[in-house]
Simulated assay, not measured.
Amino acid sequence: MTAGIDTPDRRGRTRLDRDGLDLTGNPRVVVRDVTLLSCHWYVLRTTTFDYRHSDGHWSTEQRETYDRGNGATVLLYDRDRATVLLTRQFRYPAYANGHPDGMLLETAAGLLDEDGPETAIRREAAEETGHTIGAVEHVFDVYMSPGSVTERLHFYAAPYSAATRDTGGGGLAEEGEDIEVVELPFTRALDLIRSGDIADAKTIMLLQWAALDGPFAPDHPKES
């Protein structure tokens, strides 16, 4: 008996080796087999599939996929003060791959778990920054690393102010989170992209959206 296949894993999941076997959306792809490699917290699989190339010939391919669930992120901004609210926390994978200290400046973000994207991002904003946000704007949805990671990230933006702050934020101690809340002038945040001090993809994408089409775009309409 294998956890995650025949018996529940630590998150109560079974049949994790069946994912993808029912895909029919692309006639050039026929999934043959799925092997579960790990389900410690997230799920790592190897999938074998037949693929019809553009010249008509078929080949058998294998790909590893890392399934951590889908997530959401939000840029909190104050147009009147021209500031944004970010977080700083330790990211071991970045530290292990050359980041000087692993302490990344980021927009608030988290996994959806069982919630919808908008519900999840309100939860994460409150936990990480201490702000209970009102209306949110959906920006776009992006596959962040489609060569190996299944995650689709839902991007949002929302205004914040002194009136929206309920707690100090900082994340959930019971989940090992130790998050610093960092308020920056928007122009300073853009400078940190240029200098490499902001090196997180989702954060760069939202800051650039804010400058081009969002609340800090030159032709953005004034909020009533």
Results as ranks from 00 to 15, higher is better:
N26Q: 02
N26Y: 01
P27E: 00
P27Y: 00
V29M: 01
D33Q: 09
T35S: 05
L36H: 03
L36G: 06
L37S: 05
Y42I: 05
Y42N: 09
V43N: 03
L44M: 07
R45F: 01
T46Q: 14
T46P: 11
T48I: 01
D50S: 06
D50V: 03
D50K: 04
R52K: 14
H53Y: 09
H53K: 15
H53E: 11
S54M: 08
S54H: 14
S54E: 12
D55R: 03
D55C: 03
G56S: 11
G56R: 10
G56I: 05
G56T: 08
S59K: 08
S59P: 11
T60W: 02
Q62P: 15
R63I: 08
E64T: 15
T65R: 10
T65F: 05
Y66F: 14
Y66M: 11
D67L: 08
N70Q: 13
N70C: 12
G71Y: 12
G71E: 13
T73C: 15
V74K: 14
L75W: 14
Y77Q: 14
D78T: 12
D78N: 15
R79G: 11
D80Q: 15
D80H: 15
A82H: 10
A82D: 12
T83V: 15
L86C: 11
R88C: 15
Q89F: 11
Q89S: 14
F90C: 15
P93S: 11
A94H: 13
Y95H: 13
Y95F: 13
N97E: 04
N97Y: 04
G98E: 11
G98M: 12
H99G: 06
P100M: 02
P100C: 03
M103F: 07
L104D: 07
L104H: 08
L105S: 12
T107A: 06
T107V: 13
T107R: 06
A108Q: 04
A109L: 04
G110R: 00
G110K: 02
L111C: 09
L112Q: 10
L112A: 12
D115N: 05
P117H: 03
E118N: 07
E118G: 13
I121L: 00
R122L: 01
A125E: 04
A126S: 10
E128G: 06
T129C: 03
T129R: 02
T129I: 02
G130I: 05
G130C: 06
H131A: 02
A135W: 00
A135K: 05
A135N: 02
V139D: 00
F140Q: 11
D141I: 03
D141P: 14
V142T: 09
V142N: 09
Y143Q: 11
Y143T: 08
Y143I: 04
M144I: 07
S145F: 05
G147Q: 03
